[in-house]
Amino acid sequence: MPDSLPASPSAMPPARPPAGGAAGRTVAAQPVRFRGGGFTVKRHGWAALAAFAALLAVWEGVSRLGLASPLFLPPPSAVGRALAGMVADGSLWLNLKASLARIAVGWVLGTLGGMLVGFAMGIFSTARAVGVPLVSAFFPIPKIALLPLFILWFGIGEPSKFATIGFGVFFPTVIATYSAIDSVPRNLIRMAQSFGLPWGAILRSIVLPGALPGILAGFRITASIALILVVAAEMIGAEYGIGAFVLMAGNLMQTDTLLAGVLVLSLMGLAIGTVLSLLERRLLNWR
């Protein structure tokens, strides 16, 4: 404690009556009570694991105690055995490979197209004037509704599935890209112009890196959309793929296999999210 402060309440000067003669309350010497630090969020890493374990335990218990029929809700242990069976007989890889290939091709096509158009709309006023109403009109269409049209155009094979996923990814990528370009601070662009940086250099050195956080945030959304669309497209017309596999298991009332397929989808989503997080950490370490 600094020398200038009293060492104990007894060393404090006596309280003076309030100025101006107004009658007030005298407060006896007392420590100041800590009243909170503004709802600070604390990390509880263990809580998620514990909640997950508790959920599995309750689910297993419900099935084992006969509270739910294993036909409609098989226990997690049965789902695990079904997943192990899928690994052993090779059906996991066969179906996973088909889904991943469709996601990869459809997502890359939709993302490249979307970024190209999004950049044009972010930079050129005419492209924006033309693009915004079109994007607003097409974006709300549930893309899976277009699959029958794509099947007519491209056939029942892979191209119609690529088109469905690509089309579904395209519009959110356009919106994410041009919004991200809008959010690049204009003072940075003015600075570059004031130093005479050419147009291409401004785009490369300022607009692209400045828009990257928004574009990567868009990737997260489009990756989820691609996953939803691949499952839906595979359920409508595919021999292989996790969507087709889940549908087949449902038709055969193999609910443990069905849930194993859903688990694979969940793990796919997690894996994609992890890859994007790594990408963000690597590319956006300046934030």
Binding site: N187, L188, R190, M191, S194, F195, G196, S205, I206, P209, G210, L284, W286, R287
Partner: peptide
């Protein structure tokens, strides 16, 4: 001289990623 008229900005205008 590469840029005869040169600004110094109030908000510094530095690229945060560089």
């Amino acid at each position: 001289c590469l840029n005869p008229i040169t600004f110094i900005f109030q908000d510094f205008a530095l690229l945060p990623w560089r």
